[in-house]
Computed example of a mutant assay.
Amino acid sequence: MSDQAHRTASDRETERGNDFDRARDQAQRMQIHSESGVLFEQAMAQTRMAICLADPNQEDQPIVFVNRAFRELTGYEEDEIVGRNCRFLQGPGTDPAQVRKLREAIASEDVVVVELLNYRKDGSTFWNALHLGPIYNEDGSVRYLFGSQWDVTDVHAARADEKHARMMEREISHRMKNMFAVISSIVTMTGKLDGAEGLAEKINARIRSLGRAHEAMLEVSFTEGPTDPRKLFEDLLTPYAPQGRDSLTLTGGKVPLDSNVVSVLALTLHELAINAVKHGAFAAQEGHVSLEWQVIDGSEGDGRLRLLWTETGGADPGPGPERHGVGMTIIGRMLAMGEGEIRYDWRAEGLHVDIQFPTSI
């Protein structure tokens, strides 16, 4: 669930609590000033909040009043409700611990709020945010138990979805780490058997880069819409930067990213960072890399992700071809397969790279 969704749910709960207090106070006043209960019944019948009154002074604390909203929420008629204890709405899925909280509150004359899984007349379920509190006589004795019910099934479902998403995130993260570890082990063993340990380490570095990229993206993988890739870029580039995060300037907002785009981004930035360590900005303590990103319109109006990589303050960049090794060839071919492109500009102050590719590959 997003922060806005959490705030909205919290605001709704606060509002409902205020409604409960106002309705209970109104019921208290009307009970005192109108023993006939006519005014109370008229007022309570009109509210959209489901309300019931129970008599704690009778055996088994039966319900003595319900309004229309209560009947509509539960599906029962008035003559099927009045005279029964409110537990008739409970069922096999109702949490006994929440029921105990209700009983304890009644015994101590406290106001309590609980969430119960309740059952309608047709057998369907709903999550009930039940507010329960006492209404007193003028002499201080308890006259009624006042209960208001709110259907919070949608809020409860959102919480369940969020919990499930987090569980899935942890499981995916665990499996992903295992997968990359297995691949890395295979590459390492193959390199030793073939006498190509150096090549194996280069491949493993690229695998580790992919692993960091996908690990960073798990935090937003269940979020719909554009994503802020700043953390992804930090995780990818900081290990190569001579002064860590201080050697980087990251500028850009949220952009659409799918898993294929993340893979291309990870390998592209990995190769650029490795080259910067060998020949460019990251080869000097004072070197700096600026990375900017944005979504631009393609020639036919299709969205394209554009990244501008700028190196300054590093080692002498030298002629372009010296920095155009296997890694950059890999980048070029990957981008070409995804209808992307890359342009290099070896300037005196450092390398400038312009990368563009579709937001979905």
Rank of each mutant, 00 (worst) to 15 (best):
S10K: 13
S10V: 10
R12M: 12
R12D: 10
R22E: 11
R22D: 09
R24S: 03
D25E: 14
Q26T: 14
R29T: 13
S34N: 10
L53A: 04
D55S: 01
Q58G: 00
Q58V: 13
E59G: 09
D60A: 01
L73K: 08
L73Q: 08
G75A: 00
I81C: 04
N85G: 03
R87H: 01
Q90M: 08
G91A: 09
G93W: 13
T94V: 04
A105T: 01
I106G: 01
H131S: 13
L132N: 02
L132V: 07
R143M: 10
T153D: 03
V155F: 12
V155G: 12
A158S: 12
D161N: 14
R170G: 12
I172L: 05
M179G: 13
I183E: 06
I186F: 09
L193H: 11
E201Q: 15
I203H: 02
I207P: 00
T227W: 02
P229H: 03
E234N: 11
D235F: 11
L236M: 03
Q243F: 04
D246Y: 04
L250F: 02
T251C: 11
K254D: 05
P256F: 04
I274T: 14
V289A: 04
L291A: 07
V295T: 06
G298N: 00
W309N: 02
T310E: 15
G314K: 10
A315C: 04
R323A: 09
I330C: 06
G338A: 15
W346H: 15
A348Q: 10
P358V: 12
P358R: 07
